[in-house]
Design a protein around this nucleic acid. Sequence first.
RNA 1: GCCGAAGUGGCGGAACAGGCAGACGCGCACGACUCAAAAUCGUGUUCCUUCGGGAGUGUGGGUUCGAUUCCCACCUUCGGCACCA
Length: 828
Amino acid sequence: MLADKSNNGKTIDRYDPGEIEARWQERWEETGLYRQTIDHDRSKHYALTMLPYPSGDLHIGHWYAMTPSDARARYMRMKGYNVLFPMGFDAFGLPAENAAIQRNVHPKEWTYANIERMRRQMRSMGAMFDWEREAISSDPSYYRWSQWFFNKLLAHGLAYRKRAAVDFCPNCNTTLAREQVWGEDRHCERCGTPVIKKELEQWFFRTTDYAEELLDFEGLDWPERVKTMQTNWIGRSLGAEVTFRTEQGHEIPVFTTRPDTLWGATFMVLAPEHPLVDEITTAGQNAEVDAYQERAERMSEIDRETADREKTGVFSGAYATNPVNQQRIPIWIADYVLMTYGSGAIMAVPAHDERDFAFATKYGLPIVEVIRSPERVAAAGKTLEPLAAAYTEKEGELVNSGVFDGTPAGEAVAKVTAWLEEEGLGEGAVNYRLRDWLISRQRYWGAPIPIVYCEVHGAVPVPDEELPVVLPDDVEFMPTGQSPLLSHDEFLHTVCPICGRPALRETDTMDTFMCSSWYQYRYLSPGYNEGPFDPEEGDYWLPVDQYTGGIEHATMHLIYTRFFTKAMRDMGLVDFDEPMLALYNQGMVLGEDNEKMSKSRGNVVAPDDLVARYGADTVRTYLMFFAKWDQGGPWNYDGIKGPQRFLHDVWEVALADYQRQAVKEEASRDLRRKTHQTIRKVGQDMEQFSFNTAVAALMELRNAIGAAQREGRVSQESWDEAVASLLLLLAPMAPHLAEELWQRRGNEYSIHQQSWPEWDESIARDETITLVVQVNGKVRAKVEVPAGIDNAEAERIALAEENIRRYLDGRQPRKVIVVPGRLVNIVV
RNA sequence: GCCGAAGUGGCGGAACAGGCAGACGCGCACGACUCAAAAUCGUGUUCCUUCGGGAGUGUGGGUUCGAUUCCCACCUUCGGCACCA
């Protein structure tokens, strides 16, 4: 330890974070300080931060997600909660396979080497992770239970296999869930390649069964932003289902949110993939329809970005009857109708729907107005202008709608729906944008889907007691990116669990989001063999009290894990409805150039270098200080000097041999007031994740202590109280420094087992306040007055101020407003 | 196009619930220490000013004794969704 600085005549050691941090990390581990076990005498708090993918090196983003979460967990611990704060790895995934193909390393080797490295890097954070609860999703002891969940879901009718046109990433060589296709160009969430459509037999989870319940966020302390995004993603539409009939007698149900416009339906449109297309198309139209269908299929395989949005379609030659007015209307085929939403068929109301209008205009189909705007109603006597464009009126009335003519537009949906039900023509219906979750991946490095295909028995689940279906290690990677499981004979060939006849294994693996949908349960007992988690641990710790992580998972992981918990509840595995009661999203650390960090931009900030240069405590404190946590912002190498100096000063002041000179009671009282105000402020801020202002408050206390030291007027007691409080309040943010100074000041190990300090209102209360005196709303004077003065007294003092008298200049106040404890505003 | 968030000094950012705009920090300026520099410490730091004051929280209006905060319209940036019937 270096000794080079003299303070008040006494030599003290210099702050050397590297030495201190390593030493305490070791001690904490030796003494099991962060072991987190059931304790029925204390309230539990399950703090969870999103688990990382073992990509190689820890990124500053990991630090930004984890260290403030750790500070919050540490704060809760000091508040008296028994806190669980586990960590693990979401270890299956494509980058491991890419490494295998490009660098000839086995994905397993690559993954576990990365885990080893990242675990070491994470230890340098000094976080209170309980490593004995670590779970790694690629361990057979973990994915055994992922497979077990698959079987459970299958048994409960929540998993099924279906042939469908699905999204496929040609670069990753695998299908993707709808949630993993992003943006206007519909690109792969992971690699950015635009996806294509493929007709494949795939496994799905029935997330749509929970669409309605997933819209209910009652009792959840989640950001509005996330709730809105999920609500939009689920996309609930209320309307009616109405059945149209072709002239040949086929029924075509359609969903509409506007049953009030039924009389304006002048044609129908089917999606090109609609099963009825082939049946109804007339001989004369066959060639044209076939060509269109083929083109539509090809369309989805060409770059979507270059595809223009002009509507195209072909006439099927067939006609249907509009059930409300018996009109004969043509049936068209067009790709602006999606097979995956509603019934894949629509009634087209060109007068009141922009898309239908564009289509009708292009192909010369009739347009019939059925809702007339108030202006057009008023002009009805005269010749009406033809419709210029589709419009949908909220006001006005129905026209051309038989018995409903004259019905006010605002009442029409309800009235028409009721009538449809009476007449047996249709009924009220709800549709969701949410799709079932496609979990099949044509990849090697994932949990095998535990299914065997038997010629006699079809898809048969591997019995629970035979799980896990182990992923074989001896595989060869194809440069084509094809899954090596397809060519692994030993894996592929098995026998049917029912009849023992030769059978083939499913070679697809599960979406890694499946593995991460239940990891919070596995953390409770990662070595447990009787089930996914030990129920005793579950009874105590579940559900998660505070979840933290990035916003990018709003409509992926956070929907999946909610679905999972609801399904687990319905399968009798848990007795609550939501996995995470509270959620907080941190923002992103940008590069110094205010751009997203990337290797190509050269603006990446490496945490290992920062720790070597400044120490983990400084990095942690800076990350909490430089912006409000949910906002994030640009990294700045000059900015980190603030927290660096701050911690250095804390070191100096905590070890200073305080020399009293002439002690003044007022000075002691001032310091005590600041101390107690800081305890109050930091506590409030920690509750609300306002780490930046919490650090600022500690800096203020540091400044006050520094001033007290220079003046030497405060009592020993108030000095000690201030310094001890500063260390305790700082402990969650800079755990090593606080621990070291706590010990050096002669306290017992460990500062992290101390209670959060209490503040005393009578000490924190200000004795005097600055009374602001305004004239006509402009500040003209400030007066120090006793805190408790009444309004009349405040007014008297204000009016007596010399500067105020000058401004009033003899005029009589018209009105005087007094805000107790704040200001007096004199209106003249 | 629809939905959501945000615009505050040279910079990052504060401001409970309509009441002192700019906490805290960076940077900068000056001073101390030093042969000197760095580091450290101290003082100052929104802008303009004729030193009386005046202006000021994206823009323009409004409500109010008083608006960064509430209302209306608009501009800009970022995020999400997007032929969803």
